[in-house]
Structure formats: C-alpha cells, structure tokens
Design a protein around this nucleic acid. Structure first.
Length: 355
DNA sequence: AAAGCGTGGAG
DNA sequence: TCTCCAAGCTT
C-alpha cells in the first residue's frame, strides 16, 4: 500500500529530514543532532531570542542577543539590571515596549517562579510580552512540548501548502488549524523551527524556491501556480507625514540635554531630545518652546524617518549653553555617560545631523 | 478588535 | 524613492 503524500506524518517526517540537513545556525539554537545527543536549550536564551525576533530579522537580532547574554547571562541577572541600562542596550532594535515587558517578565520569573521559566504554555502566556506565538515557541522549542507556532512564516507556508486564498488576518484561524494538524508529537520543537526555517529560506515571500522544497509534491499552490501570490493580505492604509522639532543643547562642559520619554506611547521609556509634539500639519517651522533660553541655531537639512504608521520630518535646533543653565525639561548628561547608540534611531539621526 | 508600536534590508 | 516585510504583543 502506497504512502499517502497528504498524510500529516509523511509531511512532518519530510520537513524534519530536511531540517536535519539544513537547520540554520543561530546563537540560541540547539541543532537537531545536539538535541538528539541529549542537549537541551536554555529557556532563558530561547525566551530572549523569541522576544527579540518579534517582527525583527535574525540578522538584526544576532548582535543584540550576544550583547544581552554577555552582560546578563541568566534571567536573574537581567531581573537585577537597571531599567535605563536595559533600554539603552535595546536602543535601535525598535518596538521598545518589548524591552519594558522583557524586564517585567524577568522580574516576575525571578520573584514568582524562582528564576525558572515555567514549562507550561498557559503559564507562559500570562507573562508580560509573551503572546500566543511566543508562548508556543518557548513551550515547543525550549521544552519540546507539542504546541504550534503561527508566525508570518508558518502563515505563508500553510497558505501555499493548502492554496488558501482567504486574506490575512481573517484566515489566521484556518491557517492555525492546518499548522496544528501537521505538528508531530515527536520533536515538536524541531518541527516548529523547521517550518520557520523553510519559510525564511525556501518558501520566501517573493520567488519561492519551490524546486528544492521538501513539500514540493504535496503543495497545492505549487500545483496551481499560485504560490508567489499567497498569502493574500487585506490592503493597509497609507501613512501620513508628521512634522516636529527637536532641540540639542550642549553645555560648556560637554554635557547634553536629554529626557527620558514617558513609558506609554511611541519610543516609551527611551532617551530622547526635548522637542515639540509631532503633528500632521506642516508649519514653515513648527513652533515649539525650547527647553532653555539660548542662541538656538537651525541646522540645515532635516531628519526623515518612517515609523510603523507615519512618516516624520524633524527639524533640528542646536545651541551651546553655559554651565549652570537650568532646563525646563529633561536634564544634562555628562558626555562620558552618553553614547549616541543609547538613543532610538530617530533621535540618533538628529544627533548625526547636528554634528 | 482595530490601531499603535521601530527599524533596516531587499527588490 | 517606495513598498514590503521580519520568529507579534498590547490595549
């Protein structure tokens, strides 16, 4: 009797065999051969990598992951860190609520779980910054529990494998159902990583490499010639352009005037330059009260930056101020204690322009 | 439950 | 220059 190519077991066996050969090397990953030899992943490193990887590429995450784990080797080390140090180390990675939740989560694991991540999907889901995807990723990858990850890769792979034309995000429940049906009881952690690796390297958004795909034969979209057009997505709306002004004051001793932004909202908890609100209307020069009296000089040019949901054009003023200047907002930070890399990217761009 | 939330790289 | 998008979560 012939094997049915649509048998879930046949499909998971095929992708696991592919993963045994093609698993990508990542600093947090335990390769399949090492896992078979009995090596288990460090849940702290899996958690940290998964939070960093939310909406962020592997290439970008690697260096951040190395710096974080060198500086804070365990979750208890991280729990004991200063907030400002963690935010500064996260600077440039984006989605800064992740860093605030990372600290909250580390401190909860430290205080409520004895410094050990719970090997339980429902418990993981309660922790700050851990949603459905990350809980399933930690449960499966770190603890080899049978849970199904549904990220952008898996959505794309499932939409193609089953030739599903319902647009995202409406199709998510269907895609989850398909993904769950393929998740094996044996090696669920390797399986989760295998599907994501497949999506990242073969079943890519544009021009997928169907010819070398381990699921080439059972793939419905490949048979229909629709692979490159899937998954369908509901159109997103256009980004407006906002304008704003920032003020870079440097004291005679070299100290810079900076402020820590409020925890809520855009760039929450991050260091930044004092400035105006960012508004949709273009002023000739957006009016904003400077943080202190000085000979403010408008820098030629402007900072252009695009956030998730709007474009920003930032005008930059600079001034030298005297020792003893009392700012209306923020505080002076000694030059020795300030690195531009502590800033979120848009603020670093303003610094670069003013230099 | 739709919207808010960053950034850099690829095409 | 512009669009897409990358191992999503929170409110």
């Amino acid at each position: 009797m012939r094997e049915n190519p649509d048998d879930p077991q046949v499909l998971s066996d095929a992708i696991l065999a592919w993963y045994d050969v093609h698993a990508r090397d990542m600093p947090w990953r335990v390769p399949p051969q090492a896992r078979r030899a009995g090596q288990t992943p460090d849940p702290y490193r899996i958690w940290l990598s998964e939070v960093m990887l939310q909406q962020t590429t592997v290439a970008t995450v690697k260096s951040y992951f190395e710096r974080f784990t060198a500086r804070w080797p365990t979750v208890r080390d991280l729990a004991a860190a200063q907030d400002a140090d963690v935010m500064a180390e996260w600077a440039g990675l984006g989605y800064y609520a992740r860093a605030r939740n990372l600290l909250k989560c580390a401190r909860t694991v430290d205080q409520d779980y004895g410094g050990t991540f719970p090997a339980d999907h429902a418990e993981l889901l309660k922790l700050p910054g851990i949603g459905p995807y990350t809980a399933a990723a930690i449960a499966s990858i770190a603890f080899d529990l049978r849970h199904t990850v549904l990220d952008g890769n898996v959505e794309r792979v499932m939409a193609r494998l089953h030739d599903i034309h319902v647009p995202l995000p409406a199709s998510k429940p269907i895609l989850m159902e398909k993904a769950d049906a393929l998740t094996p009881v044996d090696r669920p952690g390797d399986y989760a990583q295998a599907v994501m690796d497949l999506g990242a390297t073969i079943c890519t958004p544009k021009s997928p490499a169907c010819g070398i795909c381990p699921w080439r034969d059972p793939c419905a979209a490949r048979a229909e010639g629709t692979a490159a057009d899937l998954p369908k997505k509901t159109p997103k709306k256009a980004k407006p352009t906002r304008h704003g002004t920032v003020f870079l004051a440097q004291r005679a001793d070299g100290a810079w005037l900076l402020e820590t932004r409020p925890d809520k909202g855009l760039l929450g908890g991050m260091l930044g330059w004092p400035g105006s609100d960012w508004i949709d209307v273009s002023h000739p020069l957006p009016e904003a009260p400077p943080p202190c009296a000085a000979e403010w000089q408008l820098i030629d040019g402007e900072v252009r930056h695009t956030f998730t949901h709007f474009h920003l054009i930032l005008h930059v003023f600079r001034a030298q101020v005297a020792i003893g200047t009392e700012p209306e907002t923020g505080g002076f930070r000694d030059a020795a204690e300030f690195k531009p890399t502590d800033l979120p990217t848009v603020m670093r761009k303003a610094f670069d322009l003013a230099r």
